[in-house]
Design a protein around this nucleic acid. Structure first.
Lengths: 119, 119
DNA sequence: CCGTATCCGATCCGATACTG
DNA sequence: CAGTATCGGATCGGATACGG
């Protein structure tokens, strides 16, 4: 993702902030606070290391996520939401509800149960 | 966009619902109620007919938007948000705010002024 | 544990021209 | 006014392998 310095439409900017398959999922995963890289990797089913890192870096560019790096071995980092990230989380939570509603009304209840997602 | 019938993650489903550059903008444009195709086309700067129609059809597939067609000439249609669409609008409004905040803090205030977007 | 690099098919989306 | 069809460059995202 190329970072632009000019946008004429707020929603076009936000589209760039959260574009791609994984960004909202990552934001949602960070809802309970800081996570290490591998916690995120384990927590998000199906994501590859490459995609996770790439998307985290883009989220950092747009200041939705920050990273704290700790010295020493083994290497350790913490990713967490910024203030704007928390605001985005509010939108993401609504999306999560919409997704659950849609699944409930279209015969995907089992998928929710299998993953233990409450509704 | 290929409509899938199985999702394991609600946010992946919602990502498909609103993916692409234009969908959130279209939803926001419908916030005040029904619009004809050409009203939308005029209201959304830079969108082509092809993209507008394509994105509207995808929004219909996911039941965020419905269409009412009127008989006679000239042809007339009305697009408007469904109940789920209104819920998505709540998320989109938060995104709009986030976008405005970001623009204000990154030297894009003029763009907002030029388009008459309040903040 | 954390991050990087490359390859490649699939998809996005703008331009353009055309139909009812 | 509303909708359709096609083409082609840009981007997305998965697989895979490598480096600090």
């Amino acid at each position: 993702m190329k970072l632009r310095e000019n946008y004429t439409c707020p929603l076009e900017l936000v589209h760039d902030m959260i574009r791609g398959k994984w960004k909202t999922i990552i934001i949602f995963q960070l809802r309970k606070g800081k996570c290490s890289f591998s916690e995120l990797h384990r927590g998000i089913e199906g994501i590859t290391q490459k995609m996770l890192l790439e998307q985290l870096n883009e989220l950092k560019q747009f200041e939705l996520v920050t990273k704290k790096t700790f010295e020493g071995y083994p290497l350790r980092v913490e990713y967490y939401l910024t203030e704007q990230g928390e605001k985005m989380l509010a939108a993401v939570k609504i999306m999560q509800e919409i997704g659950i509603d849609h699944m409930l009304h279209h015969g995907m209840k089992d998928s929710l149960d299998r993953k233990g997602i409450p509704y």
